[in-house]
Simulated scan of single mutants.
Amino acid sequence: MPTSHIALLVEEPSMEAFLQSLLPRILPATTTFEIHAFQGKSDLLAKLEARLRGYSQWLPEDWRLFVLVDCDDEDCRSLKRSLDGMASRAGLRVQGQAGRDPSWQVVNRIAIEELEAWYFGDWDAVRAEFPRVSPNVPQRQGFRDPDAILGGTWEAFERVLQNHGYFKEGLPKIDTARRLGRRILIDECRSSSFKAFRRALLEALQAP
């Protein structure tokens, strides 16, 4: 059954802004979406299982749920197991837990370590929006793997932009997310965690 609607639960407004710009460029006209932003990761994790239990009582068969959180300094595999466990206890079918069953209802995806890693994954998109930044950033030591940038990807991204004359007063996270959501190409982003999100999204859209 084709997916008619995707509901996304995210931890904060910058991811919401990013997806509000990105998803209309990807989803077919027949698939709608809604985004629910929480007041941070701890708020989402505290409320998630109860929210999923509510969904399990009425979720239509042609809907899919996406839960997106930052890894931060947690072990990503442990965090993923925890999220999958919440969904299973809520009575929902979790993507990946039943082989390649296309009838899954919820998928959990993790930005490693933060949303800004996805920006580093498509540096051409960043340069299109902020043309003064160097094209060589992805080749520098410490930036070659977008998901392995040390010391916080938000701080690293802000520092790179400030070094090139942008946002001396601090990076406006929500506006930047909105702007880059309009730029990033889903087939070009090198971030492994973005690719995992992309695969799940395309799988949802291709479900029979």
Rank of each mutant, 00 (worst) to 15 (best):
A98R: 10
A98L: 10
G99L: 02
R100Y: 10
R100W: 08
P102W: 12
P102T: 12
P102F: 11
S103W: 05
S103M: 06
S103Q: 14
S103L: 11
S103G: 14
S103T: 15
W104S: 10
W104C: 00
V106W: 00
V106N: 01
V106I: 11
R109Y: 03
R109G: 02
I110N: 07
A111E: 09
A111C: 13
A111M: 12
I112K: 14
E113K: 13
E113A: 12
E114P: 02
E114H: 05
E114Q: 14
E116F: 03
E116R: 01
E116N: 07
A117Q: 06
A117C: 13
W118F: 09
F120I: 07
G121T: 13
G121H: 03
D122I: 08
W123H: 07
D124P: 00
A125V: 08
A125P: 08
V126K: 05
V126M: 07
V126P: 11
R127V: 03
R127L: 09
R127D: 03
E129Y: 00
F130M: 07
F130D: 06
R132Y: 12
R132F: 13
V133Q: 02
V133D: 05
S134L: 06
S134I: 05
P135F: 04
P135G: 14
V137Q: 01
V137P: 05
V137W: 03
P138I: 06
P138K: 04
R140H: 13
R140Q: 15
Q141G: 01
Q141R: 12
G142C: 04
G142H: 03
F143H: 15
F143R: 10
R144C: 11
P146N: 12
D147P: 03
I149S: 11
I149E: 09
I149W: 02
L150E: 15
G152S: 06
G152V: 10
G152L: 00
T153I: 02
T153A: 13
T153M: 05
W154T: 06
W154Y: 09
W154N: 07
W154Q: 11
E155D: 15
A156S: 13
F157S: 04
E158S: 15
E158P: 01
L161P: 11
N163Y: 01
N163M: 10
N163P: 00
H164I: 01
H164K: 01
Y166S: 02
Y166L: 01
Y166D: 08
F167G: 05
F167M: 09
F167Q: 02
F167A: 00
F167K: 00
E169I: 10
E169P: 01
E169R: 14
